[in-house]
Design a protein around this nucleic acid. Sequence first.
DNA 1: TATTAAGCGAGACGGTACGTCACGTCTTAGG
DNA 2: CCTAAGACGTGACGTACCGTCTCGCTTAATA
Lengths: 192, 192, 192, 192
Amino acid sequence: MAGGRPRDPHAEEAILRATLDLVAEVGLSGLTVDAVAARAGVGKATIYRRWSSKEALLFEAVATVAEEPPSPDTGSLRDDLLALSVPLGEKLADPHQGRVMVEMAAAAAQDDALREVQRAFVERRRASGRAILRRAVDRGEVPADVDADLVLDLVVGPAIYRSFLSHRPVDADLMVRTVDAVLAGLAVAAPS
Amino acid sequence: MAGGRPRDPHAEEAILRATLDLVAEVGLSGLTVDAVAARAGVGKATIYRRWSSKEALLFEAVATVAEEPPSPDTGSLRDDLLALSVPLGEKLADPHQGRVMVEMAAAAAQDDALREVQRAFVERRRASGRAILRRAVDRGEVPADVDADLVLDLVVGPAIYRSFLSHRPVDADLMVRTVDAVLAGLAVAAPS
Amino acid sequence: MAGGRPRDPHAEEAILRATLDLVAEVGLSGLTVDAVAARAGVGKATIYRRWSSKEALLFEAVATVAEEPPSPDTGSLRDDLLALSVPLGEKLADPHQGRVMVEMAAAAAQDDALREVQRAFVERRRASGRAILRRAVDRGEVPADVDADLVLDLVVGPAIYRSFLSHRPVDADLMVRTVDAVLAGLAVAAPS
Amino acid sequence: MAGGRPRDPHAEEAILRATLDLVAEVGLSGLTVDAVAARAGVGKATIYRRWSSKEALLFEAVATVAEEPPSPDTGSLRDDLLALSVPLGEKLADPHQGRVMVEMAAAAAQDDALREVQRAFVERRRASGRAILRRAVDRGEVPADVDADLVLDLVVGPAIYRSFLSHRPVDADLMVRTVDAVLAGLAVAAPS
DNA sequence: TATTAAGCGAGACGGTACGTCACGTCTTAGG
DNA sequence: CCTAAGACGTGACGTACCGTCTCGCTTAATA
């Protein structure tokens, strides 16, 4: 048993593009499936056949354009961490992207499936961060028993906190000072 | 001309209570103005007369029940910081409250007025935190040029980041390890 | 046992005037008590203290400006009837007044009290018409057993029917032809 | 491009039936679109997709159940006219139907489109009446230059006037006496 | 003259219905 | 079986009026 018309890949592409365009224009909360369908020149059913909700659609659309997490290996822990955190800071500093990020976080908070998607998305970036720390351990820059997860939380947390909750500006300088403060803590914890 | 029947404070109270009850039951996204009105035994217009949106209503309801920010003065920077951060961690660890927090953050991201309310709310807590650091400076625990804002971001950020974005558990232990890591950084920055 | 402030006759007058102005502008269905109160510079309670509904208010407002029914006595039945019917035709021919009349009829259809008011209002005009016919009988113009009520119904009915239901124009010529046709019927019923 | 799901004729039917049921129960003014939707098991949008107002809906519902205008041909002008007017009299005599009729007239007075609908509805009945008179002319019962429109206005007007405005009872006897009076006028106008 | 009961403008109150919007599903005809 | 189009039932939205109810004032007639 088989056959039937195959799904049109053009439709998929058009939907994702329309989604990104619209979310940039009106935000996640202002996004409507009707508008996506109209913009993409597609029936609503064609969207729901592929995604279970507009949030799921947005998550995939965002994933589509998200570049691979950077895996920097500059030989310096500080530079590696900055290569990881500065792009995040730039994303949060952009009002559009920052708003969409917190709206996605809110959506994920209410839906187990989306939460898992977002967790996995973040985890991929964290894996890259753990690799950075592993190399730093190998180089002797930090003690072997460093709590990599906590270090990453400390590097990333302040920017998230500022952007999502305390509504103070995020910029590159913040990321630098954050990394330096965290490294200071690692140094004292591991004196020669 | 001044006249007119004054607004009924009982209605105000009933609305806020109904809002809190309902948001605890169904979350911000599941909250409807109709339901609040019904639960409070109030007409919808009575709600809209006071608040411009259900988000604004929720913000005030939450502010109403929010206890004053703790102003601990234990004589120890570490204990003071924990007194500040552990209650936040507990709030985030509760699925209900954590979800509502990120939903409120998303709402604030889309509305200037709400953003300002949230910013002020957070700022009051941060002021308490800056006082803690000032006292620590006075005691000589940390150098006078400590960047209090960054320290507070580092203390709070990881928990926010975990709860909102990376969806890993938050608990008291996390708060302790975070504070200790931050203090380690301060120590090395200010060696005797 | 004592007084209390007497009702302000200025308020009464202002309310009735505002009602007539507004009903001319927006019709009975578009009339709101709030608007009447605002226009009259009066509290809503001051209106409800005097009238039980906006329809009752309108009925009294209209009665206030309604001139006394004409009691023509030209010596000719034809002229007397025309003196009675032509002004009605003019009222119906005016789109504003015609619309308000049918709206008032609809309101009266739903409310016993208003129906009685309207019935009495019409009855006063009919009494004048019956007097006309009585005089015509006295003059020997028509037989003594003429059914005055039916004659009046025949004189007035066509204009009402055209205006309310069949939506064809009403004009003075219609009233003349109607009266002449009715008189023709009377003549044959009372030959020489 | 033509596609799209066709409108469900079952919904249409259910809506019209619910409308008639409800208007019989509560009258036009007591009719609510919500109630129609609930009774018909239909969403409100499904109603608004087809009709622009509850009045428009009612007009169509009434038209749906209105029997074709009688086209009597008894060979007698008197009997033909009675065949036309007596059923109208019965309709007006019924409090329910009479009330709805005047409410519909009031609605038509305020809306051009509805007025045209009602005008056309009445006109169809009037055409039947004109045919009656034409045949009477052919038979030589009345002169060729009879003003058919005026005759019909005279036959129908009194009942309308009584029901809508003067609030006196309408019954079959009234219709008979009206027709006889009108015929008397025609006879004198056309003596052998 | 002091009291007092009712009226006053203003406007908030609990309701009800409005007409709109977006949801996610379903039903067409056609490829 | 997929497609575009678009109607479907559901349910919340924010608005507009309804008729009632305080408010803090007059304003006269009564005691």
